[in-house]
Design a protein around this nucleic acid. Structure first.
Lengths: 333, 333
DNA sequence: TTGTAAGCGTTATCAC
DNA sequence: GTGATAACGCTTACAA
């Protein structure tokens, strides 16, 4: 591999000039010299060594993204959006998949610190992730889900509680008299907010039975849990799921149990993945503002130091009624 | 951030010893000294700088993975499997998503070279990707799909032609008299093999009508193409799709067209993603040996130099009959 | 405008 | 067993 030194030698100049040319600064270069450098570089197939560059400059121009489960399309779509946003600013996104394991998340945390990423976007599998490593390494972190106030990270999210309430009210407006909240597997800030919104909506309704079940955030596990629920003597008329993946699992469970959606069972998801449009039937869901979140998180991280006070931004969501819940509620605009 | 120098100073020793301790070599260290170094490192929260380490050693212990579309669960599952296999050997996987764009793929190629990954696993969006950059940089590449003989990369795949033939024969055994091949969007080595297998199977059947359509590798595009097909005057009795995602699109199109699967239309996919088990109905598919592929590719890359002759390994696949095609064919074991 | 040279934080080769 | 010290390939004062 050709180095800057090789290029300099061939162009009859110094490594400093090669650097100036490839970085457009911090010193100017005479057009003729510049061309000689460019030619030499092209002839040698010179590619700057990012490692050396970063070691010297202290910036890697890379952002780490930790997601709980890359096989969940919501996180894949999120990764895609963040990568796009980061790319615009000349940043590379390093995608780390925790595979739903807290230990794996910790390993990735360490790995990203060692690799000196400039900043980190975190979607944690834990309720209170240990951000100490990042903090000590001077790496700013933004979480894309509600986090405990105790954490020193920033966050960008939608208002889960309002969204959960909105979705539940939609089901109530349809007149469904028994509703289940299918929540995530552990007690977390996000799970509490889903539940709070759900409870608030139900509290405003008369004679509606409501209860909660849980499953992993995966189609399979949700399908299992839902199948058990739907085959039981006491099955609900509607289910509000805290992720689309769980909702797809419920759709499958209903199919397997011989129930028709939405006639026998109404289903609502959460995330707004593209698959909602091509599920059977199309899935009613809370649409997260994925692209806006991605742009915003990259923007925030660009001008940020660990020592800045954490910011907590709340973006808007959109509730989208589709076939799986019976379409728009009667009386809605 | 504490450096090896800081640790050495605090432990009253040299950076060389710190390095020996953290690398278990290449020289031995007296137990007492070692402990002093470890203590000092712990107190300072020392984390070796991977950049400096790699610059010096010439190895980054990282593998680049380029996938066409991380939102396609097959590639997400593949990434997961490769990351697991790489992790076992202490390697980090850098996942690069081409977002179905050849240009993006080229950008990632350059980026991985600059970041000095030790090797690359490639699933290309192009039929004849330009591997020159990797070659010049001395980075070995293994593709996980059939590639043109002209390329100097290795490959690990299943036999697409045999798999396509097997899947098509399954549909024929069910007695479906008109079959469509839903192939990928461009003419590629893989697409040709799918077609060859399909044609071979059909050639052995009497009075069966067979033709080909194409779509992007996505649910949406496949759903659109399939919907047009299914609403036309001449609709097939069965469809063999070259990816699961396309097959899911076809399932949706059938639903939208008011057709029942498999009674009105039989559908077969290809890849064997986990979603096949929870689709409506469950999807018949060709199961790729994802985990075995992942293990093997990491193994091969571990002991490999660019100048070694390319190897082309063919792994076994499994055909799995499920509800979407009417279950196991009559007369099959 | 350009060259020299001192880092960046490691690893690894030498001596001791 | 351990300590200097020269790389690794780049960026960037500082000089010229």
């Amino acid at each position: 591999m050709a180095t800057a030194r090789d290029v300099a030698r061939r162009a009859g100049t110094s490594t400093a000039v090669v650097s100036y040319v490839f970085n457009d600064g911090p010193r100017g270069v005479a057009p003729a010299t510049r061309q000689k450098v460019l030619d030499a570089a092209a002839e040698l197939g010179y590619r700057p060594n990012a490692l050396a560059r970063s070691l010297s400059s202290g910036r890697t121009h890379s952002i780490g993204l930790i997601v709980p489960d890359i096989c969940n399309p919501y996180f894949a779509e999120l990764a895609r959006a963040i990568e796009d946003a980061a790319g615009v600013r000349g940043n590379l996104l390093l995608i780390a998949d925790s595979a739903l394991s807290a230990e794996q998340e910790r390993r990735h945390t360490r790995s990203l610190v060692e690799r000196q990423v400039d900043s980190v976007v975190l979607v944690s599998v834990c309720d209170e992730p240990d951000l100490g490593e990042f903090f000590e390494a001077g790496i700013p972190v933004v979480a894309l889900h509600p986090i405990s106030d105790r954490e020193r990270a920033s966050s960008i999210t939608i208002d889960y509680e309002a969204a959960a309430q909105r979705a539940t009210e939609h089901l109530l407006a349809h007149g469904y008299g028994s509703i289940v909240l299918l929540n995530g597997p552990v007690e977390s800030t996000g799970a509490r907010q889903h539940r709070a919104g759900f409870d608030r909506a139900v509290a405003g309704a008369e004679g509606v039975r409501a209860w909660t079940i849980r499953s992993e955030i995966s189609r399979h596990d949700a399908a299992e849990s839902a199948y058990t629920l739907l085959r039981g003597t006491d099955r609900p008329r509607a289910v509000y799921c805290t992720t689309d993946e769980q909702a797809f699992g419920v759709l499958y469970a209903a199919h397997r149990a011989g129930l028709t959606v939405p006639d026998d069972l109404a289903v609502v998801g959460f995330d707004g993945t593209r698959n909602c449009l091509v599920s059977i039937p199309a899935l009613t869901t809370v649409q997260q503002p994925t692209e806006a979140m991605a742009r915003r998180v990259v923007e925030i991280l660009a001008g940020r130091t660990v020592n800045d006070d954490p910011v907590h931004e709340v973006l808007g969501f959109e509730f989208v009624a589709r076939a799986s819940s019976g379409g728009p509620a009667p009386g809605s605009a």
